[in-house]
C-alpha cells in the first residue's frame, strides 16, 4: 500500500482552507451569507428604517423646516382629501392592473405550460420576455404614440368605421378623456402591457408543476372543466398568481413614470413621493407616502396567507 492512500500530494494554503471549510461546513455557510446579509441588513433595512423614522417627523407650517419630534401629524395628512385621493387612485389602479394581468396571463401561461412544446415553447418565452429587453421608457413613449389622438389606434378605429365606439367610450367619465393617451384607460393599458411578463412567468411556472393526472383525477371524479379549474387548477396555481400579483401590484403602486407620460396628470403615490421629497422639502410626508405601499402589500400578503393562497406550496 502506498503512503499516499489518504493524503494526496497536493497541499498549500488554498487546499488547507478548503479542507478546513469541508470539515466546518457551518463556517462555509457563514462566509457565504455574511456579505449579502450585511447588504440586506444595513443598506436595505437601514434605509427602510430611516424612511420610517422620517415619516414620524413633521414639517413646520411656517418655516417649512422639518421638526425632529415624534408626531403622527404627517400620517394624518395622508387622509386629507387630496392625498387620500392619491392613495385610493393608486390602489384602485394597481388592483385593476393586477386583476386584468391575471386574467390575460392565465390562458397564455396555461397554453405555454400544457401545450407548447419545443419550438413553440421558445417562441413563448421570447414573446413574453422580448418586451422586457427593450427600454422601459421606449415602451412607454411608443404607447403614448399608439394611444395619441392622432395615433395608430385612433387611425385603426377610423379605418374600421368604429370611431363612434371609441368616442362613446371616451365620453365615459373618470375612465375616459380627450383621447386614450390622456385617459386613465391609457394609463391602465400601459401598466398592463409593461407588467404583464411579471404575471405570466410565475403563473406559467406554477402551472408547470401541476401534474396532468391531477386534472384527470378531478374530471374522473365528476368535475366538469369549469369545476376542475375552480377546485384544482386555480388553487394549485394560486401561489404563482399571488407571486405574479405581488409583482404587478407593487410595481404599479410604486411607479411614477408611466402616469406622468400617459394619463390625465392626476398623481399616483410614486409621483407624490417624488414631488414631496424634491423642491418641496417635505420629506416626512414623502416618507409617509412611501410607507403606504409597504403597509398595503403587508396587508395583502397577510390576507392571502389567511385565505390559504400558499397552502399548495
Amino acid at each position: 500500500m502506498s503512503d499516499l492512500s489518504l493524503h494526496t500530494g497536493r497541499s498549500g494554503p488554498l487546499t488547507r482552507l478548503s479542507d478546513w471549510l469541508w470539515r466546518n461546513p457551518r463556517m462555509l455557510i457563514l462566509l457565504l451569507l455574511t456579505p449579502p446579509a450585511l447588504w440586506l441588513g444595513i443598506i436595505y433595512l437601514g434605509s427602510l428604517f430611516a424612511l420610517l423614522a422620517q415619516s414620524f417627523f413633521s414639517i413646520d407650517e411656517f418655516s417649512g423646516l422639518i421638526v425632529y419630534e415624534f408626531t403622527l401629524k404627517t400620517y394624518g395628512e395622508l387622509f386629507t382629501p387630496a392625498n387620500f385621493d392619491i392613495i385610493v387612485r393608486t390602489v384602485v389602479m394597481a388592483a385593476a392592473v393586477t386583476v386584468a394581468a391575471a386574467l390575460i396571463s392565465f390562458p397564455i401561461a396555461y397554453y405555454a405550460a400544457r401545450y407548447a412544446k419545443g419550438k413553440w415553447k421558445a417562441v413563448f418565452y421570447l414573446g413574453v420576455m422580448l418586451p422586457l429587453w427593450s427600454s422601459y421608457l421606449v415602451k412607454v413613449y411608443s404607447w403614448k404614440l399608439i394611444l395619441a389622438k392622432e395615433g395608430i389606434l385612433n387611425w385603426l378605429f377610423e379605418i374600421l368605421h368604429m370611431k363612434w365606439l371609441l368616442e362613446a367610450y371616451l365620453a365615459i367619465p373618470v375612465i375616459g378623456g380627450n383621447s386614450l393617451s390622456v385617459s386613465w384607460t391609457g394609463t391602465f393599458l400601459v401598466f398592463l402591457y409593461v407588467w404583464l411578463p411579471f404575471m405570466v412567468l410565475p403563473i406559467q411556472a406554477s402551472l408547470e408543476r401541476v401534474p396532468t393526472s391531477m386534472l384527470e383525477a378531478s374530471g374522473d371524479l365528476g368535475a366538469n372543466p369549469g369545476q376542475s379549474f375552480r377546485y384544482v387548477l386555480l388553487p394549485l396555481a394560486l401561489p404563482g398568481v399571488i407571486a405574479g400579483s405581488i409583482f404587478t401590484f407593487s410595481l404599479t403602486l410604486g411607479d411614477y413614470i408611466i402616469p406622468q407620460i400617459v394619463g390625465s396628470s392626476r398623481r399616483f403615490i410614486g409621483q407624490a413621493v417624488y414631488s414631496y421629497q424634491g423642491t418641496a422639502g417635505n420629506i416626512p410626508l414623502a416618507a409617509a407616502f412611501a410607507v403606504v405601499p409597504i403597509v398595503i402589500m403587508g396587508v395583502y400578503l397577510w390576507v392571502a396567507k389567511r385565505k390559504g393562497a400558499f397552502d399548495a406550496l
Binding site: P211, S213, M214, E216, A217, S218, D220, L221, V232, P235, L236, G308, D311, A312
Partner: peptide, 12 residues
C-alpha cells in the same frame, strides 16, 4: 373511476 399510478391526490 380511476386510481392513478401517481395517486394524483390534491396537495391543497
Amino acid at each position: 373511476n380511476t386510481v392513478f399510478q401517481d395517486y394524483a391526490l390534491f396537495p391543497h
